[in-house]
Every structure is written in C-alpha cells, then in structure tokens.
C-alpha cells in the first residue's frame, strides 16, 4: 500500500499550527520512521493518518483511494499506542481477537477461525500459551508484543507505531526493535513509526523523515541523511543523539 499525504494542515485551538502543508509519500512495503523532537508534529501527523484526528485541510490518498473522510475504524490501519492501550479486562487472546470480533457480520470470521488466527499470531510474537493471561500479568515487552499482534490481527492496510519502545528498558528495547522489524518484513505491511530516538529510527527504518515545527525537514535513507544532511537543524539533530 502506498500512502500519499498531501498538504495536510492542522492546528489546535485554531491558533498555533501543528502541521502546516505537510506532504509525504510512504512507499509500498517500506518501514518509514518519523523522527523529530517533541512538539515537531510527528504524533499529530500519525494521528491524522490513523483517522483519530481530522486535518483542517489536505488529503490522504491510499493506493489511489481518497481516505481523508474515512473514519478511523473504516481505514483498517493497525495502530500500536505508546501506552499499548491493551484492554485491561480482557485476556491476551480476547485482546488480539478484538478487531475480528467487531467486524461487520458479513466479514466477521467465525469463532473457530478467530481462535485459529489468535494462535497463529501468538506463535508469531513468540507467546504461545499466554492467551489466558491478563495484561496486568505481563511484562512491558510482552505487552508491547500483544499490542503488535492485536494490530496485525485485522490484516491492516498500514501499520502505525507510536513510540512503541519508549516504555521499555534499554535491553528489551533492542531485542524488540529487531523483532518488530522482523515481523514487519514477514507480514510485508507498510509501516510508519513515530520516535524521538535517532538511533532507534536509523536502526529500524528503510527511510527516515525528520520533522521540525510541523513540516518535513528532510527525508531519505539513513545513509543519505548521514552523508548529506540538508540543514544545520538536521545535522545538529543527528549529532546530538
């Protein structure tokens, strides 16, 4: 899936602009990182893509289809939240199956199919046998993986990751970074990652878009960015990390 973000603008309280005429193309199957300091608008941009925030102007085009007015649910994008946002009162299996359970009757898989899909995903995230546990009984890393599985369960057209590693300690973070990348490759889903961590972005993404004050400052592969930083801001941001 190719996503074109075309001249999207967004402000809060109608005053200070968070996104200003931001445009960006996410290529089919790629892993793109949105990198920037806090307040650069990267999370807002992700929320606009997810459908949780409506832009004031601009368009979102997914493989030629205008999805700007599509609700978050109809977009079928998998999203992993910074807090993971697992459903506390549901066990791991029910969490993962949630997106399948709420599908329209015509598309909804049967109970047996849902169970099968959950097992498949549990295997994929290396958590076979954890289906009956509750989120409170899991470690931070396990929660993150369940959140991934839940997002992947609906066979998302796009995977959106909002600082998915920030709540983890350094060692777990490294491991999970590799496993997330690995999962993404296996599923082949186009992915956008939001992060403020330069090393993380460069270590995981095919391309990195550096954001500053609501616009894309520069976009390119890690090597390109390192070799040719387009502005002093990019340079200082790379060095500071």
């Amino acid at each position: 899936m190719t996503l074109q973000i075309e001249r999207v603008s967004k402000s809060f309280d109608g005053t200070s602009a968070v996104l200003e005429d931001t445009s960006l193309t996410v290529r089919d199957g790629e892993f793109l990182a949105l990198l920037g300091p806090s307040g650069s608008g990267k999370t807002t941009l992700l929320n606009v893509v997810s459908g949780l925030t409506r832009p004031e102007s601009g368009r979102l085009v997914l493989d030629g289809e205008d999805i700007t007015d599509l609700s978050a649910g109809r977009r079928r994008f998998g999203m992993v939240f910074q807090s993971y946002a697992l459903f506390r009162h549901m066990n791991v299996a029910d969490n993962i199956a949630f997106g399948l359970r709420v599908m329209d009757r015509s598309e909804r898989p049967s109970k047996a199919e849902r169970r099968e899909r959950v097992e498949e995903l549990l295997a994929m995230i290396d958590m076979v046998g954890f289906g009956e546990r509750y989120p409170a009984q899991l470690s931070g890393g396990q929660r993150q993986r369940v959140a991934m599985a839940r997002a992947l369960a609906i066979r998302p057209r796009l995977l959106l990751l909002d600082e998915p590693f920030s709540a983890l300690d350094a060692k777990v973070r490294r491991e999970l970074r590799d496993s997330v990348r690995d999962l993404q490759q296996r599923v082949g889903v186009t992915t956008i990652l939001v992060t403020h961590d330069q090393a993380e972005a460069f270590g995981i993404a095919d391309r990195v878009a550096i954001m500053r004050e609501g616009s894309i400052e520069q976009i390119g592969t890690p090597d390109e960015l390192r070799a040719h930083p387009a502005s002093p801001f990019v340079e200082s941001f790379l060095n500071a990390a």
Partner: peptide, 21 residues
C-alpha cells in the same frame, strides 16, 4: 481514553467501543 482509541482503530463502532471497552 487510549483503550477507546485503540478500539476505534480496530474497527469498533461507537456503540461497540462503549459496550466492550
């Protein structure tokens, strides 16, 4: 709030989100 947002992105209708989450 985050759980409800998650439910919405997973395709839940407003009523499903309210009832289930």
């Amino acid at each position: 709030e985050d759980e409800e947002r998650a439910a919405l992105t997973l395709g839940a209708s407003g009523w499903q989100m309210f009832r289930l989450v």
